[in-house]
């Protein structure tokens, strides 16, 4: 069963009809094939129209779509010999933030990212992708390990935000995020970030201070959730759609603001409609990004990363 978003209602209806026809096809026979193909092209047209002009709030819903490919899907498709590494060596292993060694198109890499989970049980186990301090401390450990062995780092960002809980605060959530940012900036190996779904605030940037930052076409990246922003500035979470608009959180907006380096096209109707194609396109973009930064290594690479962030917001936007 496909999950449809509210604004996809016309598409859901069309696809429902197609499904119905396929079931009656044996009984009545004639003209069914023709009708199905007519409905199919109508669906495609509808999808094309809808997805060509998604509002920032609709993109937020697509970015959070339960069927959207997550960390584990991307890793399964793009990383060979993936070998997960666990634990922060201080307190625990955090299932909300995963990482490990593997091969990206033949080359050994360190992969780190948030995992939201695919079904109810998985979502609970991975805490909906909301990492605790031990998650960010594991990320730091893995980044340092990569640095020591000269392995490039790939981070996949997909989180509503760092977990807001008593235990997380007690164990220094803020410090863990700050050190994670500091560790990204200390790397003498390339680091590439792909924001594949939700890039929620501090919990996202903790892994995203990179040499190149890519975003899926319908991913979002924001300082605060549209609901959170609306409840503070509009005093009502109902204004989330307006807040989403004002926050400029889409990949297209962020590319215009020069805060990210590339937008990765998603298949028609979003990555969840064809995860395989989406991930393959992402793979190509990641490879190009690694190639782009391959010329610089060590201290100059680190210096270039710093300069990129220092320059943000200083160059006038056309």
């Amino acid at each position: 069963m496909r999950t449809y978003l509210d604004f996809e209602k016309p598409i859901a209806e069309l696809e429902g009809k197609i499904e119905e026809l396929r079931h009656v096809s044996d009984a009545s026979g004639i003209n069914i094939v023709e009708e199905v193909s007519r409905l199919r092209s109508k669906t495609e047209r509808q999808l094309r129209q809808t997805y060509a002009k998604l509002t920032p709030w609709q993109k937020t819903l697509v970015a959070r779509h339960p069927d959207r490919p997550h960390f584990s899907h991307v890793v399964a498709a793009l990383i060979g010999d993936f070998t997960p590494l666990a634990g922060d060596r201080r307190f625990a292993d955090d299932p909300a933030l995963l990482g490990g060694l593997g091969r990206f198109r033949g080359r050994p890499v360190m992969v780190i990212g948030h995992e939201k989970g695919a079904d109810t049980e998985g979502r609970v186990r991975h805490n909906f992708g909301m990492a605790r301090p031990e998650g960010y401390r594991k990320a730091q450990r893995l980044m340092r390990l990569a640095d020591r062995f000269g392995l490039p780092v790939l981070t996949l960002v997909d989180t509503p935000g760092a977990y807001p809980g008593i235990d997380a605060e007690e164990r220094g959530q803020a410090e863990a995020i700050a050190r994670s940012i500091e560790t990204c900036l200390a790397l003498r190996v390339p680091i590439i970030t792909a924001i594949i779904g939700e890039g929620g605030s501090g919990g996202a940037i903790a892994l995203a201070v990179a040499d190149r930052v890519l975003m899926f076409e319908h991913a979002i990246y924001s300082v605060i959730s549209p609901e959170g922003c609306a409840s503070i500035l509009w005093r009502s979470a109902d204004q989330a759609a307006e807040a989403a608009e004002a926050l400029k959180l889409t990949a297209q907006d962020l590319e215009r603001l020069r805060l990210i380096d590339g937008v990765v096209a998603e298949p028609l109707g979003g990555a969840h409609r064809d995860p395989e194609v989406a991930i393959a396109t992402l793979g190509d973009a990641i490879e190009r990004a690694f190639t782009e930064v391959a010329g610089t290594v060590g201290e100059p690479l680190r210096e270039a990363r710093r300069e990129r962030f220092i320059a943000m917001g200083r160059t006038p936007i056309a």
């Binding site: 605030s201 501090g202 500035l233 805060l259 710093r306």
Partner: peptide, 21 residues
């Protein structure tokens, strides 16, 4: 963070870390 600056305010977490480093 100053949310009226959107993701630009988020980027300050990296810029200020560079400063103190």
């Amino acid at each position: 963070a100053r949310m009226q600056e959107g993701a630009l305010s988020l980027m300050q977490m990296a810029r200020t870390t560079i400063a103190v480093d």
